[in-house]
Write a protein that binds this DNA or RNA. Sequence first.
DNA 1: TTGTACGCGTTATCAG
DNA 2: CTGATAACGCGTACAA
Lengths: 324, 324
Amino acid sequence: MKMDDIARLAGVSKASVSRVLNDKPNVSDKLRKKVEQVLKDYDYQPNLVAQALNTKKSKLIGVLLPAIGLDLFADIVDGISSTLQVHGYEMILADFKGDTSQAMSNLDVFRSKQVDGIIYFPTDNSPEHVAYINQFKIPLIILGHEPEGLTKKSVSFPDVKATEEIVQYFIDMGCKEITHVAMPKGHAVGKLRVDAYTALMKKNGLKPIVYYVDDITYESGYEIAKKIGKTQAIFAAMDRLALGMMRYFIDEDTIADYYIAGIDNMSVSKMFNPSLTSIDFDYYHSGKVSGEMVLNLINGKGVAKIVLPYKLYERESTRRKHVR
Amino acid sequence: MKMDDIARLAGVSKASVSRVLNDKPNVSDKLRKKVEQVLKDYDYQPNLVAQALNTKKSKLIGVLLPAIGLDLFADIVDGISSTLQVHGYEMILADFKGDTSQAMSNLDVFRSKQVDGIIYFPTDNSPEHVAYINQFKIPLIILGHEPEGLTKKSVSFPDVKATEEIVQYFIDMGCKEITHVAMPKGHAVGKLRVDAYTALMKKNGLKPIVYYVDDITYESGYEIAKKIGKTQAIFAAMDRLALGMMRYFIDEDTIADYYIAGIDNMSVSKMFNPSLTSIDFDYYHSGKVSGEMVLNLINGKGVAKIVLPYKLYERESTRRKHVR
DNA sequence: TTGTACGCGTTATCAG
DNA sequence: CTGATAACGCGTACAA
């Protein structure tokens, strides 16, 4: 059922049908009524592809993430989706698995699909990749953090501040040995946290100790815990790493020997036994915000880059009282 | 940069460019080389919208889910994505929040966007909605469970069998009081589990006791736990409900008084303290399978409906030894 | 082997 | 106020 058919059925031209469809003025009530009736009778659905070709607006936003399976990205997608839904946009979702060349090919596809805007959470902040991003023609929001030299607008998490808050928190508790369990090497966000941790440790005359996991799973946390010797406190780069480690310490019955904190504030973190002290980044909200930003970009409205807030939730994992 | 431009730049017709692009035979090597050079020099990206309009193939799959924020749906999306990626399809993702009329409007948008296929996880199995689904023209796979009267192919989880396995497991342990904590009323999958539970309980001369939560969150689990009196075993419809409840029992120091099991086998369930006995449905795989099925449907290959396997993981929550 | 011309379903322009 | 008609960028008969 296309416009032509509707036009014939209603005994008018397709131009008129188009006018009715798009609520244009200059349409007689009689004609409008007639067309609307036929439209309803035959359950007409406009072909948005044809429309997109003509108007050069696809009403599609490309969303490119490194790992949709991780809770935080699911929350982000949730937020983006809720914003787009309201504004009549759809989301094309792609997962580049942390592989930058894969990401670039995904971006090419977005371009080919004529998306109106893009939200991209990169894991690579090399100058080359930033340059690649900068020269992108399509409205593009970088989500996660703002790499050096980026000219696109970004929605970034306060990784450095959050890291400092946790490390300082441990220092204030009197900890001298604070071990950092970091994300896999090569991950931009991971490096941000490692660097912030290292800097603050050194500034306080403490020795940084960093362990890297191979991938971001509970199991990796569990495994890395085996390698960590005695230490007073552990700052895990992500909650799921912290939780995996905690499980190992529980199994070993040494959980009471460590202060542990993470970043993410997963919804399960406060349920865990012991509950995990963590920094909350409100991922859902970050999705909403970046959604609004691309839309503003698309509509030519000015947008300013933004750094999201964070909040530390203090829980049992940093209190001795959880010891049983 | 469109085909016309490339053609002019290479001094050939756009038909020839099209041939080169689509690897058609009947193209002289010389012309091919020439065109390929220009293609590369100007970084040509085909306009897939125009292509879609012409070929009536959008290379888009619509994925409609009730709650992308839930881990299991994130896993499903992960699986779908990995399949589609390989076959050159993109995914349009929409979240209908468990609201059927919302879902129907999402499906309309998919139709308008000319998606080649749809994967839909409904939460409403009423005859009216099934009828609505049945009359859909676009290749459509129902994911989750097969409602009565469905004529579309489906990928379904063995909800009934899984439920029976858990209930029987408790019965075999000698439990007489087995309480079921169910998903919110009106949720199709939830009803499936409630019914299977109720039937098996009655068959064994046991009294079914069902509590419904208002939404699927850890907090709801925590809250409902307060209302549950003495009971030997608890079968939670979802792991996150079970985990929330467990946290309450931990707080009350009554965790040792209950056997608890769930369905989902979330990756955190085996890390939890105590670890949670649960049924695994391999959501990631279900996504891959349904992805393959729509593609087969699209390519006119025969597809058969499929019921996924499941596996019970027995853990500390159903062993007294986790008692401390 | 290569090029021309038309059609896909819309919107936009321009007459009438 | 309404109706032809030309784009939009691509594939594909058909012609050369």
